[in-house]
Structure formats: structure tokens, C-alpha cells
Design a protein around this nucleic acid. Sequence first.
DNA 1: CGAAGAATTCAAAGCGGTTTGGATCAAGCG
DNA 2: CGCTTGATCCAAACCGCTTTGAATTCTTCG
Lengths: 341, 341
Amino acid sequence: MNLKQLAEALSLSQTTVSRALNGYPEVSEETRKRVEETARRLGYAPNSQARRLATGRSMAIGHVIPVSLHEMMNPVFMEFIAGAGQTYARFGYDMILTVVPDAQVGAAYREIAVRKKADAVMIHGPRLDDHRHEILQELKIPFLIHGRIPGRENDLSWIDMNNGSAFETATDLLLDLGHRRIALLNGLEDMDFAARRRRGFERAHAHRNLTADPALMRQADMTEPYGASSAHALLDLPEPPTAFLVSSMITAIGVSRAISERGLKMGRDVSVITHDDALSFLPNTGDKPIFTCTRSSVRYAGERAAELLIDQVMPHPDKPVHEYLKAELIIGHSTGPAPKA
Amino acid sequence: MNLKQLAEALSLSQTTVSRALNGYPEVSEETRKRVEETARRLGYAPNSQARRLATGRSMAIGHVIPVSLHEMMNPVFMEFIAGAGQTYARFGYDMILTVVPDAQVGAAYREIAVRKKADAVMIHGPRLDDHRHEILQELKIPFLIHGRIPGRENDLSWIDMNNGSAFETATDLLLDLGHRRIALLNGLEDMDFAARRRRGFERAHAHRNLTADPALMRQADMTEPYGASSAHALLDLPEPPTAFLVSSMITAIGVSRAISERGLKMGRDVSVITHDDALSFLPNTGDKPIFTCTRSSVRYAGERAAELLIDQVMPHPDKPVHEYLKAELIIGHSTGPAPKA
DNA sequence: CGAAGAATTCAAAGCGGTTTGGATCAAGCG
DNA sequence: CGCTTGATCCAAACCGCTTTGAATTCTTCG
């Protein structure tokens, strides 16, 4: 069932039928009703390839996710994509997802742009020395960054959470509780979000004329074992930390495991604050959640990001947009006053 | 830069250029070289919408993932998709991902089929009373199931792991270790995989003329808190279990937390076996992994599934294909002999 | 040398929509 | 009544590619 057949069945021209279905004014209400009714009855829906070819708009947004050494980003990427996907579905956009090795992401974007597979693309997990935006600018395809690229905050579109200030606030909380040796288990600091978190951590110290001990700061892919083994190692130090600030719930779970493996109690003997991306499979909720955390829903970020990007593609080529999501600080069971020395 | 312009630049017809680029034999090696070289130089790549329209093949595979109450399936879905995506990229297929509320998955599949958005689709997480395959058969679009639909094992294509026998083996291990009160923390048993796991669990008991105690079997969305609270509740019983068989690492982490919260030691006081989907962010590896587990990489399943589906779409409409993945049983630190009563 | 056959190349017809530039027709008006 | 106007509807061009069927050129061989 294609447009031609439908038009024949209605004894109308393709033009009229097309217009009727697309809501153009130059068709009488009466025939519009008739067209819509028979279209529905015959189960007609326009072939999307044909429509795309004719309109020049692909009605799709591309996401390229690098499958790299940093496997850890996956659950976050994926939750973001789930959020974005819902928005796309609501607006009639398709999401095309490309999963390629790190080295091929440039090529993947190029492919999308030059073959016109999508009207816009999303950039995930920007690094400090990221260059994807340059490729995309050269290709003249609209894009939005989940995160920020240092130095390009003003002229590119992005959505991000307040990584720096969230971690500064969290550190403040720990300092207020009397902790003076605080460990930071960060993500890889060549990622922009991790670099910001680290600066926030250091800022909080600096404001009190303290300096964070570099021996207590670590960075790695945010796995559970990373949390456990780091916590063990740090707690073995002559002067162990009394608190941990952790970049991911998953790593925090590892920390919590290490703490109990040593017969200590989290929240009493050792405090832990983690960032919580609100991953659906790791709820840290309830009256008083397990982990004190800075929370910002990455799924919600996905939803908003998709809206912003669709907006950007709509026929009014706008200025760059920015959206700044504030993580909330939530007190759970895992923090308490620093133990007396 | 489109085909016409490229043809003009070469003083050739579109036909010849098209054929040269697509490897047809009726074009001289010499001009083929020339065409390829200038195409590369001018950065030409065929518009995919146009090509799709002309060929009638969309070179895309659709995945519809329901965002439902069962949020928990997400990390597994997503890991599967990451695997599948890599395969698609390798074969030049696009993946289009649709994220919709449970109630709209039928409509989403219909949309894909009737607008010709994809050449085939994947079914995720089949239920016992699943009907998606009927919609897809009616729409005459090839599909493959990740999992199985009961009663339709022979005439539909699927890829699945040995849920039943893996859990039977795991249960056997625990029974061999002397455990007689074994708890099962399963996923929701209206999902086919969970129903099979339960049957495997019961089969192992039956083979020794034992019956599994229904009071020790639970099912729910596989979150971390589900594991922790269930473990606490069960260990509070007058006759608590000495071992847990768990359907997901994430839930098992909750169990492990509950065990240590009670001052018990996993592997000594309480044994735990979990199924391990080999999620990239939850490595349970090493010489002797934390959890004894049945392991089957869902990412690998995704890779294979994509290959099977692409095969199915290639111009030789085949019989249904099945692939049966065997989970391996891996001994970790979390299991040991049952404590003396 | 001329014709048959192979090797190349091309013009044009789709693929299934959207959109431009009229046509057609009834109503409105001086 | 003739002409303008607005409301509808339509034929045909176009989007950028593939593919059919035929034309052209080059070899080969009696």
C-alpha cells in the first residue's frame, strides 16, 4: 500500500492525498476526513525512506558510542540513551545508534553526516582533549554535547550537571563533619566530568586553607573492584582516610564491601559519599538511602538533551543552547562524624 | 556532492559510476580505479535514503526496548545492544533503537515494519505469554528472539542461554556441598528466562528426592535492594537458608551486603551462587572471583544475535535458526560447605 | 575486411514520497 | 454579465540512487 494506490482508491491525486495527510490547508475538511479515514482503514503509512529523500530531512538523531577501554561508561551512556530514546519516540524521531571502537568514532560521525543518516548527533563523554566537535563542525551537522569541552563552553551546545560544585559541596559536608583525610576515588581524569569533580574536591579544601593529599586521590574506570581494592589499599596506609568521596555508585559499592570486609562499619568508622547517576537498577532511595550522595538523573539528562537537540534541528537554526543540571545532595546512612583520632 | 555531480566530474554516466562503486563486473578495471579515486578525493558517499529507496532494503535492524516497570532489565538489554551494535557496524547495518512504554511496543514494531524502517527486528526479554511474535509474523518482517517463547521453540528463530540447566548445575553444586535449605532469588517469573531457571532449581532438588521450600523462593525485579532485603528477611527465618542462588550479580551484591551487615561471612557462613551476565561494569573475574557463578556473556549473545539476524535478512530466506549458549560454572569465593547444623 | 561476440558505457525508467506551478470551479462583486 | 478571488485539486518535476535494456566500441576470427 503506497501513496499512489491510496490515491487511486480515493480517486484523488497523490498531491491531494499527501497534503491531506500532512495537514496542509489547501484541502477541504471533508476530503481530508475521507482521506484520513481510508488511509487508516487500508493501513497506509508513508515509506520513511521515500519521505526522507523527498524532504531532505532524515528525522533521526545519531548517537555514536565508543566501545573502548573505558567500558565503565556503558551503564551511564545507556541510561542516558534510554532517556533520550523516549523523547525521540515522542517527537517522531528515530534514534540510530552506532557502536564502534574508539578509533572509529570520527569515521562513524562522518558516515552519518555525509550519507545524511541523521539530522543531528550527540557527543557522549567528552575528554579534555576532545576533537569530535571539530569534525562535526566541519561536517556542518548540528550536535549537542553531554558534558562540556573545556574552553568551548560558550560557542557549543551542551547539557551537563554541576560536577565541580556538587563535589565541592560533598567535600564541604565531609569537612564539616570533621574529616580531614578524605580519599577521592574518581573516574579517569582525562574525562572532563572527572577533571571538574577533582577541582571541586580541591576547591573545598582550599577554601579552608587545607590541601588534599595526592596520595589519597585515585582515578580509574569506575568498576566495583576498583572501589574495593582502592579502599583496602588506602585503609592500609599508616594514616588512612576517614572518608571517601566516590564518583560512581558502582565503585562505592566496592568501597562499602571493602569496609565491611575489614569489620568496619560504613557511616560510623568510615564515611562515604558517592555520586549517584540514579541508574534504574541501582536505586539508592528511601527515607534514608544507603549512600549519602550527590544525585543527578542521567536519564533525565538524556530526555532533556534530546529535546534540546530536536529544538536545534527544527527550522530555526538557533544559537548554542546550554543546560545546567544541579545535582542534589542527599544524606544517607553512609556518612557520620569523623572518629576521634 | 551527489552521484550526478560526480558523474559529470568524471565525464561518465551515473550508471557507470554507480556500477564502478558497487563492484559490478561490467566496468573496466581502469575506469573503476579512476572512479574510486575521484570519489574518494571529492568525498563522495551515496545518500543512504536514496539508496534505500532504490534498493528497497533499509540496511537497518530495529530494536524496540520497552521501558517498563521492569526497569531492571535495562543493564542487560543495554549490554546486549552494545554487542549487537558492534556487529551491525561491522556489516554496514544501522541499528535503530526505539524506547517506548510497554503498552506501545506493538505499535512501535508496526511502525517499523509498515514504514520500512528496518529489514528485521529483535525481540528482547520474552514473557511466558508473549505475543510480539504474532504481530511480527503478521507484518511479515524477519525477527529473532533473545530468549525463547514457550511452545514456539521450533518454528521461531532465537538465541538463548541454557537457563534451566545452568541453574540445575548450580543447585547441584550447592546440594553437593551439603546445603539443604537453599534460597532462590529469581527475576520475575513471568519472564521466560526466570521460569526456566526456577524449573532448573526444582529439577535439581527432585533428582535427589528433595523438594525446594517455596518459602525460600522469591521473585522480583533484580535490584540491589531486593537482594539485601530478601537476604535479611530469609536469614531471619527460624530455619534460615544456608545458601542463596541468585539470578543477577546486582542482586547478589545486595545479598552479600546483607550477609556482612549481619556479621556473617559469605562463602563460610552462607554460600552464594549468582548468574553473571558478564556486564562490563561488574567484572567478577580473576583467579578466584568474588562470586561463584554461572556465567554467560550477554554482550556476546548480542554479537551472535546480530549475526544470525543479518544472515536471515540476506537474500536467502532461511529456516528458523537457533543458537544455544552454554553458561559455564565458575567457582569463586562465595561458596563453601554447609555449616554443621 | 566484415561480422559476430565480448566488453563497456549510457539513457531512461523506476523507488515512493513532497512540492511547485498551474488548472478548475464556484462564489463574490461592480 | 464579465472578471476577480479564494478554495480545491491536479500533473509533473524532483529528491539521489539503482537497474533495465539498448547503444557503442573493441576484439577476435573466418
